[in-house]
Design a protein around this nucleic acid. Structure first.
Length: 433
RNA sequence: GGGUCGGUGCCCGAGUGGCCAAAGGGAACGGGCUGUAAACCCGUCGGCGUAUGCCUUCGGAGGUUCAAAUCCUCCCCGGCCCA
């Protein structure tokens, strides 16, 4: 990692469309040229896994490290207790201590997998650091907090933040708890600056207000200059929320979202979005992406860009092996339908599955409907009937008649696995036990 | 604390005694076309199910009525204004 990379990071981020807001860019550029900078990004453990949307800031942290800077990933055990109002239209539900602690552990493990802590980076002084803001927040008492932290911030400043303004003018309002969130985050930055020489904070664009609050606090309390930078929120051209499917959020945890599902989601990305996503969600060099896009536009139907995006993101999140598996699954499922026992068995662990006891499948009765509901493919028996009637259900590749209610008898006699398909893209494996 | 407006299905939002499982839009889901696209077209979209049927739902609890999301009482939550 030479000086060149350190300098070029801002330019790279700009080319990738990852620079939403930042403090004085010239000053920041100069600072980056001087030598490695320590920067941090916080992730609140609102669930036991990060999701696809978190990937952008997290990878940005990684990009900085790759460019020769030192990243700190912060798991917000303390801030998670309070709830960040930024980018939210409603008050959050508070999490209890136990839940929070297990979430912190899970999130921390994920953060860890994206950054490098090894000896080599240690030698360069840019080994990543993982912290939990409970370390310095848990013990602080209210009076000290109000005096040491609250004293340095005026309510006017707090009120002028976009996140607060939005919520104040909404019907929902804003509790004092969430209003105070900004102070906690500002204090985090201050503490990291004091103890780890952290000079910069990055985050999603909704974090801008919180970040500048921290910068102000550092200036007031330490008379030091700190920097801030935000990355854009990922959006989709069709207006849908990025990273959400009908089944819910796309998680980074393979237990919550199978690599295959993640892969599928990315394969299906709109042409209009694919270049942006390649730039923002992968570490592929910008020039290579340009070439890939030229290639892609020659024959968009081949989805070369989407293919690359899917494997690349899967690789980052789950590793080479899982990415390979997801790819194979995709090819297998969307080539010819697998119906042999072996090929069905190969789908285990790739496609969502449900165990069903053979005795539970009332042969000749409504076993198909039962199974559709059981697998979660349909939300109710009525929904199942409607979907079948609309021609939306296939069993082992055979579309079912519109009045079908039970699984074909012969399938139950010989197989251990049954592949149920809803629509073109939803597959579920029944494991008969 | 006072006044006032509001809380409707996943979201927005109409409805202000029966014709309301509740308009309209969005999202979502299935089908068609296609590139496992987009756009577009068709269908569905509380549950049971197929019955001019029953059950559950319009912030919560009671009440009036043959009949309530709609009226009354109390309570909870939020906005705005006043104190």
């Amino acid at each position: 990692m030479g000086n060149t990379e350190r300098k070029g990071i801002l330019e790279d981020l700009t080319l990738r469309g990852l620079l939403q807001d930042s403090t004085d860019q010239t000053a920041l550029q100069e600072r980056l040229e001087q030598g490695p900078i320590t920067l941090y990004c916080g992730f609140d453990p609102t669930a036991d896994s990060l999701h696809l949307g978190h990937l952008v800031p997290l990878l940005t942290l990684r990009r900085f490290q790759d460019a020769g800077h030192r990243p700190i990933a912060l798991a917000g055990g303390a801030t998670g207790m309070v709830g960040d109002p930024s980018g939210r239209s409603e008050e959050r539900n508070l999490l209890d201590q136990n839940e929070l602690s297990s979430n912190v552990a899970a999130v921390a493990a994920q953060l860890e997998s994206f950054l490098s802590f090894d000896a080599e980076s240690k030698k360069k002084g840019i080994a990543a650091l993982l912290v939990d803001n409970r370390e310095w927040t848990a013990e602080v008492n209210v009076l000290d907090f109000l005096r040491d932290v609250g004293k340095h911030v005026t309510v006017g400043t707090m009120l002028s933040k976009e996140s607060v303004k939005t919520r104040l003018s909404s019907e929902q309002g804003l509790s004092f708890t969430e209003f105070s969130y900004m102070l906690l985050q500002a204090n985090d930055f201050f503490e990291l600056h004091k103890n780890y020489e952290c000079e910069m904070q990055i985050g999603g664009s909704d974090q801008w207000g919180n970040i500048t609050a921290g910068i102000d606090m550092i200036r007031r309390r330490s008379s030091a200059i700190a920097y801030g930078l935000t990355v854009p929120l990922v959006t989709r051209s069709d207006g849908a929320k990025f990273g959400k499917t009908s089944e819910g959020t796309l998680w980074l945890d393979s237990k919550r979202t199978l690599p295959y599902e993640l892969h599928q989601y990315l394969i299906n990305v709109d042409d209009r979005d694919v270049e942006k996503l390649l730039l923002q969600l992968t570490l592929i060099p910008v020039s290579e992406i340009s070439e890939l896009m030229v290639d892609h536009r020659k024959s968009p139907e081949d989805r070369r860009a989407q293919q690359r995006l899917a494997t690349e993101v899967c690789r980052l999140v789950h590793g080479d092996e899982e990415a390979e598996q997801a790819l194979l699954a995709t090819q297998g499922l969307f080539g010819s339908e697998p119906t042999s026992e072996d090929s069905l068995e190969a789908l285990r662990g790739i496609v969502p599955e449900t165990e069903v006891r053979a005795s539970e499948l009332k042969q000749g009765e409504e076993s198909l409907i039962d199974v559709l509901v059981l697998s979660g493919l349909c939300s109710s028996r009525g929904d199942a009937r409607r979907t079948i009637a609309a021609g939306g259900i296939s069993v082992n590749g055979d579309r079912q008649a519109e009045d079908a209610v039970s699984l074909p008898n012969d399938l139950l006699l010989n197989g251990d696995y049954v592949l149920i398909q809803k629509g073109k893209k939803n597959r579920h494996l029944l494991v008969i036990v």
